[in-house]
Simulated scan of single mutants.
Amino acid sequence: MRRGWVVATAVGIVVVGGVAVAIRWPSGGGDGLPPARARVYADFSACLLTGEQGLASPGAGPVWTGLQDASGDTGVKVSYLAATGPATEANYLPYVNSLVQRRCDVVVTVGEPGTTVVAAQAPAHSAIRFVTVGGSGATSANVSPVRVSEHVRDDVAATVRQAAHAAGH
């Protein structure tokens, strides 16, 4: 009989302890801790096509930073894709097409041959905004050329913000 009371008391202590832990567990409520934060993205994306070295490719660093700046205050999702292999138009075409198939709302390229490929492909994809940084400068209605300068970061960010705003984001 005494053994039964010991077991019942032990079970009671465990139950009471569990309830106490559950009540005190951090929930982001009134317990003094900030609520958990998750980044909420807009249903809008900007994709950067870089050279084989990725973000270390010539000119890609400030462009990527500009994309991140635009993402920070608009919620635009940003990503990049590095084209591997030779820097030729024939090699870059599948990478541009990949970003189109991914349904990127904005496709950004830096230098040649990406800007030439975008200039050729843009007319067939009028719903996508293309941003060409440097390169040939050929344009169509949905291509926004950005000059390489000390302001390229700000210019890319402004162009992406404008595209997101025009799309209602």
Score class of each variant (00 low, 15 high):
residue 7 V to P: 11
residue 8 A to P: 08
residue 10 A to K: 10
residue 11 V to C: 10
residue 12 G to Q: 12
residue 12 G to M: 12
residue 14 V to N: 14
residue 15 V to S: 13
residue 15 V to R: 15
residue 16 V to H: 12
residue 17 G to H: 09
residue 17 G to W: 13
residue 17 G to S: 15
residue 18 G to E: 13
residue 20 A to C: 08
residue 20 A to K: 04
residue 21 V to Q: 07
residue 21 V to R: 01
residue 23 I to R: 11
residue 24 R to E: 12
residue 25 W to G: 00
residue 26 P to K: 00
residue 26 P to S: 09
residue 28 G to N: 05
residue 28 G to Y: 09
residue 29 G to C: 02
residue 29 G to A: 11
residue 32 G to Q: 12
residue 33 L to S: 06
residue 33 L to G: 05
residue 36 A to L: 15
residue 36 A to G: 09
residue 37 R to I: 14
residue 44 F to P: 10
residue 45 S to Y: 11
residue 46 A to M: 07
residue 48 L to W: 08
residue 49 L to P: 07
residue 50 T to C: 14
residue 51 G to A: 13
residue 53 Q to P: 05
residue 54 G to W: 06
residue 54 G to D: 01
residue 55 L to F: 06
residue 56 A to H: 13
residue 57 S to A: 15
residue 58 P to D: 05
residue 58 P to H: 11
residue 59 G to M: 00
residue 59 G to R: 03
residue 60 A to E: 01
residue 62 P to H: 00
residue 62 P to G: 00
residue 63 V to Y: 00
residue 63 V to A: 05
residue 63 V to E: 03
residue 64 W to A: 07
residue 65 T to N: 03
residue 68 Q to P: 00
residue 68 Q to R: 08
residue 68 Q to C: 02
residue 68 Q to D: 01
residue 70 A to D: 02
residue 70 A to Q: 00
residue 71 S to F: 03
residue 71 S to I: 04
residue 73 D to M: 02
residue 74 T to S: 05
residue 76 V to L: 01
residue 76 V to G: 07
residue 77 K to Y: 06
residue 79 S to C: 06
residue 79 S to A: 07
residue 81 L to K: 09
residue 84 T to N: 13
residue 85 G to W: 06
residue 87 A to D: 06
residue 88 T to H: 03
residue 90 A to Q: 14
residue 91 N to C: 10
residue 92 Y to S: 03
residue 95 Y to T: 10
residue 96 V to A: 01
residue 96 V to Q: 03
residue 100 V to C: 01
residue 101 Q to F: 02
residue 102 R to G: 08
residue 102 R to W: 08
residue 105 D to L: 05
residue 105 D to V: 06
residue 109 T to F: 09
residue 110 V to T: 14
residue 111 G to T: 14
residue 114 G to K: 04
residue 116 T to R: 06
residue 117 V to D: 05
residue 117 V to Q: 09
residue 118 V to R: 03
residue 119 A to D: 05
residue 120 A to I: 02
residue 121 Q to F: 03
residue 121 Q to N: 05
residue 121 Q to Y: 07
residue 122 A to R: 06
residue 123 P to V: 09
residue 125 H to T: 02
residue 129 R to D: 04
residue 130 F to M: 00
residue 131 V to C: 10
residue 131 V to G: 05
residue 132 T to M: 01
residue 132 T to V: 01
residue 138 A to Q: 07
residue 138 A to K: 06
residue 139 T to F: 00
residue 141 A to G: 04
residue 142 N to G: 01
residue 143 V to F: 01
residue 144 S to Q: 14
residue 144 S to D: 10
residue 146 V to E: 08
residue 147 R to E: 15
residue 149 S to A: 04
residue 150 E to A: 12
residue 150 E to W: 10
residue 151 H to T: 15
residue 152 V to P: 03
residue 153 R to H: 14
residue 153 R to Y: 14
residue 155 D to Y: 03
residue 157 A to L: 06
residue 159 T to F: 11
residue 160 V to H: 10
residue 164 A to P: 02
residue 168 G to N: 08
residue 169 H to W: 08
residue 169 H to D: 05
